[in-house]
Structure formats: structure tokens, C-alpha cells
Amino acid sequence: MANKVEKATLLIQRFDPYTDKTPHFTEYVLEYRRNDQLLDLFNRIKTDRDSTFSYRRSCRHGICGSCAVKVNGKPILACRTPVHELIDEFGPTLTVTPIDTEKIIHDLVIDMDEFWKKHDKISPFLTPQQHSGPQSSLQGSSIQGETLFFDSSSASLGDADYCIQCGACYYVCPVISVQPSFLGPAALTKAFRFINDPRDTQSDRLEVVFQPQEGVWECIKCLKCTEVCPKHIDPFSKISRLHSQVILSSQYTSGSRIRHTKGFQLDLLLNGMLNELPLALFALRIGFIKMAIRGIRMLFHGKVVLNPFKPRSKGYKQIRKLMRDSQ
């Protein structure tokens, strides 16, 4: 029933650097109705219990991207997530933390500077040929030199222009914490949007996603970004396509990452299975010596098999066929 009142326990991480030494959790037991969103409960805490409770919010319907927080570790938009859905998923106690616990300014408000810098870093603007394209065929057109364009071309960008920069994908990405220079899913999605816009004329766009430590190579394909995106944009598939674009681009033929991918492919085509040792040699060349020590340690732990002449996989013909079909 729509107006049944139930109780939820919110365990909220609070931290005011002015008065607190460390973050701590405060428990709030609140009544909620079926249509209450998490943000409604935040507002009630602020107006009725503790006016110092701080969080970001603005549009109230999931389009401005201000209010992303983590509930039991999962990033959500507080304004567009009903409390009852969270309770169905996590039980009656909800643990609310800032979307990133490293850079807290006050309670749930964090410093997103790094996130925005990466947004700006991918040259997020179209560089069009001004007034390009065929003239509109209709008489009386008010637009001179209209660039004709098709919905199918927009569709191929896979809603990348729908991103609201809420940071859900970025702060759930496990790579960011170990490789802080990784651009992350949101910025790469935006890069994808410009790289694949047929109207764009900037030829060196792939450069930024090609960069070691920053670009597509760092993605570990865990799909967390796609899982949490509140707008269902699927950042992973964008990263994945950028990955292919870099490999297939004639601009980039050298570099250990490219050779690794190509060697991997060759190995599968020839043998139907991966052979680590020749692959490492092929990809790293002289750098292989540096890796040798780690290789030996892996050998002792049984992580690799030292056999440069692995037998072919039994089903290699089938694998080869699958690979051809997928291309």
C-alpha cells in the first residue's frame, strides 16, 4: 500500500574536519513511506534532527548528478532511489557513505576536483568543419549550409551524450585507487563520444586514450561501471570499443601494449590457446629481462607452465572459426 509507514535505520558516515578527528557513523531511525527516496530521508534528518548534516543535491530527479552517494558500497543517486528498493536489496539497515571516502570535505560532500580534471583532459569539445556538408535541399531553409546528419549516427554513440557526470562509475572503479592517473569510465565515455562523432575533425583524439597509465589499457574489464551507471549508458562497452579502435588504428603499430594484443590474437589463431612465455617475449622484447624475475617467481608458485612449445588446443579449428566470425 502506497502510504504504509515503515521504519528504516540509516547508518550515515559523518565527518566535519572542523570538529571531528576522524569520520564516524551516526545512526538515524526514520519512518519512510513507499515513495520516499533516499534524499527525502536526508532532508528529514537535516530539518528535524541535525541541521549540520551536509550533502549535495539539486534537481531532485536524476538529471544534475549532484547527489551520488554509496549505500552499502553501491553508488546510487539519492534523489532517484526509493528507500524501499534499497531495503529490499540490503535489509533494514542502510550504511551510507560518501561516494569517495578519501576526499571528504564535510559529511557526504567530497572533493571531486580530480574527477573534473579528467573530464577536461580529454579535450571534451567537438572540432567541426564550420559550415560543412551539403546544402539543405529544401527551399526556404533558414540554416545556411546545414550539415546533414542521421539519427543512426547519433545512435551509434550509444547515449554517451546522456552522461550526467555523477561520478558513480568513477568512484566504484577498482583501478582508480591503484592507478590514480587512469582517466576512468566517465571521461573515456566522453572521449568515445567525440572520437566517434562523424562531424569531428580532430585527428589525434585517440592519443589521449592510448596513453599508458591513463588510457584504455588500465581497464580491467570488471564491468562495475556498467553495473552502477544510473543512466544505463554502459561505459564499459565504450571503453571496449575504444580499445578495439586503438588496436585497429593505423596510427598505433608499435608499443608493448599493441604487440601484447596482437601477439595474443596470433597465439589464439595458431594454437587456440595462450602461451605466456612467447607472448611476453613478443610483447616486451628487451623489457622481457626485467619481467624475468617475476616470471621465475610465478613459475615457483605454479602460476605459469614453462613450455615454449605448448601443444595446440584440441578445438583450435573451432576457436579459429569463432574468431573469424566475430571480426
Binding site: 569539445f125 567537438l126 564550420q130 559550415h131 529544401l138 546545414e146 550539415t147 546528419f149 539519427d151 554513440l157
Partner: peptide, 16 residues
């Protein structure tokens, strides 16, 4: 806006 990248919906002929 079109020149700067806004992906306006199009007619079948490719016009806005």
C-alpha cells in the same frame, strides 16, 4: 549548437 556537437534528432532526410 549543431556545429558544436549537439546531437539533435533528425528527419529521415538528415535534417533537424
Amino acid at each position: 549548437l549543431d556545429n558544436r556537437g549537439a546531437l539533435f534528432n533528425r528527419t529521415e532526410d538528415g535534417m533537424i
